[in-house]
């Protein structure tokens, strides 16, 4: 009985309007504090820059893109977004823990193998990482935070992400439905 209840609970999420409202308040608070919005892909960029810089410093210095984020006195990891991302991991861990959602697993549709799921996850991540650099931000930094201040670029990025995703969804349907 208790186990049954727990299992049901693990798939009970917040009402989306409630979550959205709180997220909106958080964005508002972030703008009030820092003058800019939230972000997520920035920390991954900082990580890549740091890894490349550690492995081969001269190569990172010579590259025009890495060198934008390198500073002789400061590590690229000493960055607002990196700390924010650490917080995201902690916050999600707390929420998942409270609802018994924490476990090691590969989540996929029963119609596909976990190998296929992982291959598509890797490819999808690669594309998202590439796209987020070209557009200077992901769904959080460019689309969501951009929309909050009515940035034209933010709206265009949002429409491009969701528009393209709807257009190509048909070709990936086997992975999800």
């Amino acid at each position: 009985m208790t186990k049954d209840k727990k299992q049901k609970n693990s798939h009970l999420y917040w009402n989306p309007y409630f979550g959205g409202f709180l997220l909106g308040i958080l964005i508002l608070f972030t703008f009030y504090m820092t003058g800019r919005g939230l972000g997520a892909s920035g920390a991954m960029k900082s990580s890549v820059v740091t890894i490349v810089d550690t492995v081969t410093h001269s190569h990172a210095e010579a590259n025009e893109y890495y060198s934008k984020f390198l500073d002789d006195n400061e590590s690229p990891m000493n960055n607002w977004l990196v700390f924010e991302t650490l917080g995201v991991l902690i916050g999600a861990f707390i929420s998942g823990g409270l609802s018994n959602r924490i476990s090691w697993r590969v989540q996929h549709s029963p119609k596909i193998t976990s190998k296929r799921r992982l291959a598509f996850a890797l490819g999808g991540g690669l594309l998202f990482g590439l796209g987020a650099q070209i557009a200077r931000g992901c769904t959080s930094g460019a689309a969501l935070s951009g929309m909050a201040v009515l940035s034209t670029g933010g709206f265009i990025t949002m429409i491009a992400i969701f528009g393209t995703a709807f257009l190509v969804a048909y070709f990936f349907r086997k992975n999800w439905i």
Binding site: L127, F128, G129, L130, I134, T157, I161, G163, T164
Partner: peptide, 8 residues
């Protein structure tokens, strides 16, 4: 960039 992210 947005279109590539959409596919991803």
């Amino acid at each position: 960039g947005g279109a590539i992210m959409g596919v991803g």
